[in-house]
Nucleic acid binder design. Structure first.
Lengths: 200, 200
DNA sequence: TCAACTGACATACAGGACGTATGTTAAATT
DNA sequence: AATTTAACATACGTCCTGTATGTCAGTTGA
C-alpha cells in the first residue's frame, strides 16, 4: 500500500491547487478569488499555495499554462488531421475558435490571463503555438503559396484573429450561430494571405 | 471673477480625477493603483471619487471611455482624409495600430480595460467604432466590392486584427520596425475581404 | 534502528485597500 | 434669511495578500 513519498504528496497538492484554481478563477475571476477559500476548498491552507507557487500570480500562471497547453495540443491535432499545410492552419484556427465556447477558457485564458500575466505572446504555451504557426507559414512561403510578408507578423495576426473570434463567440448570446459567422469571417480574412484569392 | 457654480466645480473634480486616473492606471496598472494615493494626487479624497464614479471600476470606465473615444475619433479622421471606402478603412486600421505606441493606451485600453470592464465590443466607445466599420463595409457590400460574409463578423475581425496588431507593436522591443511589419500584415489579411485579390 | 535534519505545510501577524456610514460646509431654493 | 440639498471629507469595518514563525512527517546517515 504504497507509503506515499514526499515528492508524490507534493505533486498531489500541486494538482489539487491547480484544479481548485481552475474552478475559482473561472467562477469568480482572478481578482475576486480569495486564496483562503481556494486553498480551503482543496483541503489545504495558504501555506501550501505560497510554498508551491510563490504567490497568487504563480498559481494563475500554472493554471493558464495547463489550459492553454491543452488548447494548443487540440488545435495541433486538428491541424494534423486536416493534413497540415494551409488546410491544417485553417483547421487549427477553427478548433481554437470552437474551444472558446468553454466559459473556463473564456475567463481564465482569454480575459484574466492577458491582464495579469501580460501579453499572451510571451506565455510559454502561446509561444509554442506561435512557433508552430510560423513553421507552417514558412513552408507555405517556400512553396510560394502565400504573399511575401513578414512571417512572424502574419502568424501573430492569424492567431490574433482566431483569438478575437474566440472572444466574440465567447461573449455572444447565441454562441452556435455566432460560431459559424466567426469561422467564416476568419477564413475570409485568412484567404488574404494566399497569393491566389479564392478557394483553391 | 466668476463665482464658480456647483456644477462647474463638480465638472472640475471629475476632470481632475480622470486625469489622475490616467496617470495612476498607466503607471501602476488598475489593480495596483491605490485610490487613496490617486485622489490625494488630485488634491481630493476618496469621498469625491465614490460620489462621482460610484466605485473604482466606475473611474476606470470613465478613463477608458475618454481615451478610447479619442482614439476612435483620430482613426475616423484619418479614414475620412483617405476618402472613405476601402482606403478609408485601411487608413483607420493603420491609425489605430499606430496609436498603440502610446504606453498609456497599451496598459489602460488594451490590457486592463478588457480584463476589468469585460469585452471591448460592449464598451460604448468601441461600439461606436464598430458601428462605423459596419456602415462602411455595408456600403462596400452594396457595391459588390467585398465577399458575401456576415458584415458584423467581418467588422469585428478587422477591428480585432488592428487591436491585436496594436498589442504586438505595444509590447515589441523595436516598435518602429514592428509597426511596419504589423501594418503590412494587417493589410494583407484585410485584402482577403475583397472579391478581387491584390491592390486594386 | 535511531537520532538529527530537512522541508512541506499550517498558523499567526502585519500592512494596506476598498466600500460605506456619517459628518461638514457651501451652494441653491423659497 | 432660513432651510434644504448635495458635494466632498473623515472614520470605520472588513477582507485579502504576503511573510514570519511554528510543527510534524519523512528522509538521511551511521
Amino acid at each position: 500500500m504504497a507509503a506515499k513519498t514526499r515528492a508524490e504528496k507534493m505533486e498531489e497538492t500541486r494538482v489539487k491547487l491547480i484544479a481548485a484554481g481552475r474552478k475559482a478563477f473561472a467562477q469568480k475571476g482572478y481578482a475576486d478569488a480569495s486564496m483562503d477559500e481556494l486553498t480551503a476548498s482543496a483541503g489545504l491552507t495558504r501555506g501550501a499555495l505560497y510554498h508551491n507557487f510563490g504567490d497568487k500570480l504563480g498559481l494563475l500562471a500554472a493554471v493558464v499554462d495547463e489550459i492553454d497547453s491543452a488548447m494548443a495540443q487540440q488545435a495541433k491535432d486538428a491541424g494534423d488531421a486536416a493534413g497540415g499545410g494551409w488546410n491544417g492552419l485553417m483547421a487549427e484556427g477553427r478548433t481554437y475558435i470552437e474551444l472558446a465556447l468553454d466559459p473556463e477558457i473564456q475567463r481564465i485564458v482569454l480575459r484574466d490571463g492577458p491582464a495579469f500575466l501580460g501579453d499572451p505572446s510571451n506565455w510559454p504555451s502561446q509561444n509554442r503555438c506561435l512557433q508552430a504557426t510560423i513553421a507552417t507559414l514558412g513552408e507555405l512561403a517556400d512553396q510560394g503559396a502565400i504573399k511575401s510578408v513578414d512571417i512572424e507578423a502574419l502568424a501573430r495576426m492569424l492567431n490574433g484573429v482566431a483569438l478575437n473570434a474566440a472572444l466574440w463567440v465567447a461573449t455572444s448570446e447565441d454562441p452556435q450561430t455566432t460560431l459559424h459567422k466567426a469561422i467564416s469571417a476568419f477564413e475570409c480574412l485568412a484567404s488574404g494571405v494566399l497569393v491566389k484569392d479564392g478557394d483553391r
